[in-house]
Nucleic acid binder design. Sequence first.
DNA 1: TAATTGTTCTTCGTATACACTTTGTCCGGA
DNA 2: TCCGGACAAAGTGTATACGAAGAACAATTA
Lengths: 226, 226
Amino acid sequence: MAEDLRDKLGAQHLPLRDQVLAALRTAIIDGDYLPGERLTEDRLAEDFGVSRNPVREALRVAEAEGFVVILPRRGAVVASPSSGTIADMFAVRQRLETLAARLAAERATAADVASLRALLDQGREATQRHDLARVAELNSTLHLRILQISGNPWLSSIAKSLYLHVQWVFRLGAAERAPHSWAEHIQLVDAIESGDGDRAERAALDHLDAASAAAYENAEGGYGAR
Amino acid sequence: MAEDLRDKLGAQHLPLRDQVLAALRTAIIDGDYLPGERLTEDRLAEDFGVSRNPVREALRVAEAEGFVVILPRRGAVVASPSSGTIADMFAVRQRLETLAARLAAERATAADVASLRALLDQGREATQRHDLARVAELNSTLHLRILQISGNPWLSSIAKSLYLHVQWVFRLGAAERAPHSWAEHIQLVDAIESGDGDRAERAALDHLDAASAAAYENAEGGYGAR
DNA sequence: TAATTGTTCTTCGTATACACTTTGTCCGGA
DNA sequence: TCCGGACAAAGTGTATACGAAGAACAATTA
């Protein structure tokens, strides 16, 4: 028993680089590090209380994921998404998340549907409490869960990365829109439960269209200020 | 082999980690490192003639790209794509490359179309010479060019990564199929030139369906075979 | 003012050290 | 023969230090 636990703990060991990467992503998405801000290795190492090596490895992955830009011999800066790439992101998301919805509808087990319903319930409750942060969080969880249910790891990983970026760019607007989009989520989960791929795809499309429109309205306010 | 890779590195002036990453990707795609093969840091460092640090950074990115799998405290092994993930890859490619074809049709300039036609001509010529390697290379160039013409950097980067993986898994089969698929390419470029997004999307879909079917036939033979 | 020089900061790569895990091997005992 | 544990080897994870080279910025000079 005790050995069992120890084995698990050993396997669960999270390398520092992964923790740093997660913290870095979160910090960027949350706006603790603003677009264009310079990220020197020493500074990050100090912020996270680790040595430079894990920081460097995390930075390379963050670059591959598009969260930072690394200029040779000059270091890393937080990436600055332009409004052009926002439309591009939604175009790709539309293709991928509709596929995810279709696959989820075709493959979801009763337990999968139950977990989605549970998220919907929690979301409704949080909406009533006007707990926007919690709603936004549940929103993300729901989307990621659907990706997971789709059972396609490529789809899941790519769409997840895109989803994180969307959250990053519109984290404020998304929180405001979350309550309005909850009805769309119910439609989507209903469609997934029905097992009707076409219907699920349509529901996902509607949801994304609305989210895209909302994102654009929100973008008017603008990121331009540097 | 080590000397080969080292020579490739010496010619350029990029950060070592990027050169190592490129060399690693190439070595994996070319089969110099086989799926399941263990990649110890010391060994890679020696193969590429660098220290452990650049190797580690390259490995993290290669992991994010799906070329290697890293197990905590146990190191990296070359990823082993299962036939399951092959179907998944094609499912995602279908969504993305049809979008790319549509966007390319809507946005292609005369110069873009001319460059595609030039590739088609070279491909026809290489096919007549039975130069399969060259045909396969032009095949890739054509696909990547279409992605580029689509003008969506997210789409382009994601689909390119997927395309590399497909090449990796089916590099032999793809070379054999290349001549047969050339007619489909002509259809695709014609559709792009017409500016008809629907038509381009349909042409891309047909092409991918055929490629997917061919990939599956080829996969029957299995992997380990020399 | 404009150009040049020098200084400083930072990245990039190397090297080294060491704790800790995993893995493999060997050996004695049932 | 087979099992189990001690033991050694291999390799990762992390920290640290150091030197070289590039980039940015300040200082100096014409």
